[in-house]
């Protein structure tokens, strides 16, 4: 059958739109995973036992099962309980939740690693536990865990391809659309691989910049 890359230009607009959606989905899920991760970490560390235990079980379950399986659960599960969300929402929630659990582990380590003296100094000034957490501990914890969190964001980008399986219109699905008309899977999948790679490079560069800026105020 051979290769014929000349079919690409015709479908470039579909592919590029797919890239835009992939970037948006990645950013959306990244935000969910960051905020969710911080939220879960605070719960895992400071909530009463009857709240902590179910969260621990949930985290354990999510870290021990494949993302694709979780996406199926969330997408079909939400429909089951009557919440009819568009696939893209289920995709962002699924991706976000999956990585929120991993991020929460990182945040917990980061929070615990903040020197005890910091909390003492804040409490001594009269700050409440919550205030000390918000203004003194958490900012420092975040700074410390930026590298591994950044790595998780980059992993998120690559895993975003899985939402195509539940029908979300992004880069991978756009390739499949083009393939549907041209019957040239190799060309289009290689093309999207290149696009993912490029986005990956930009994200790594952004991560390095953030790491450098954080270093300045250490």
């Amino acid at each position: 059958m051979g290769l014929d890359f000349t079919v690409i230009p015709q479908y470039l607009d579909i592919i590029l739109w797919g890239s835009v959606w992939t970037i948006l989905i990645t950013l959306g899920a990244a935000a969910v995973s960051f905020i969710g991760g911080m939220f879960l970490a605070v719960i895992a560390l400071y909530a009463p036992l009857f709240v902590r235990l179910p969260f621990r079980a949930f985290a354990f379950l999510f870290m021990g099962t494949p993302l694709l399986l979780q996406l199926f659960l969330i997408y079909f599960g939400l429909v089951q309980v009557g919440i009819d969300v568009p696939a893209i929402m289920a995709g962002i929630i699924g991706l976000g939740l999956h990585f929120a659990v991993y991020n929460s582990e990182l945040f917990q380590t980061g929070i615990l690693a903040v020197d005890k003296g910091q909390i003492e100094a804040a409490r001594t000034l009269g700050l409440s536990r919550m205030q000390a957490l918000r203004k003194v501990v958490v900012p420092q914890a975040i700074r410390d865990v930026i590298p591994p969190i950044g790595n998780n964001m980059i992993a998120l980008l690559k895993d975003s391809a899985l939402v195509s399986v539940i029908g979300v219109s992004e880069l991978t699905l756009s390739a499949q659309r083009a393939i549907g008309s041209t019957y040239r899977p190799f060309e289009f999948y290689v093309l999207v691989a290149v696009i993912y790679y490029i986005i990956n490079i930009f994200m790594e560069a952004a991560q390095r910049r953030v790491e450098r800026r954080v270093q300045a105020s250490r």
Binding site: K158, F186, Y189, Y197
Partner: peptide
């Protein structure tokens, strides 16, 4: 760099769906 920098799913598709072409 290439195999860590691109989605595993895409790598799978290239091999399975695109393989016959090469």
């Amino acid at each position: 760099s290439v195999f860590r920098g691109t989605p595993a799913l895409i790598q799978l598709f290239i091999l399975y769906f695109g393989g016959p072409q090469i």
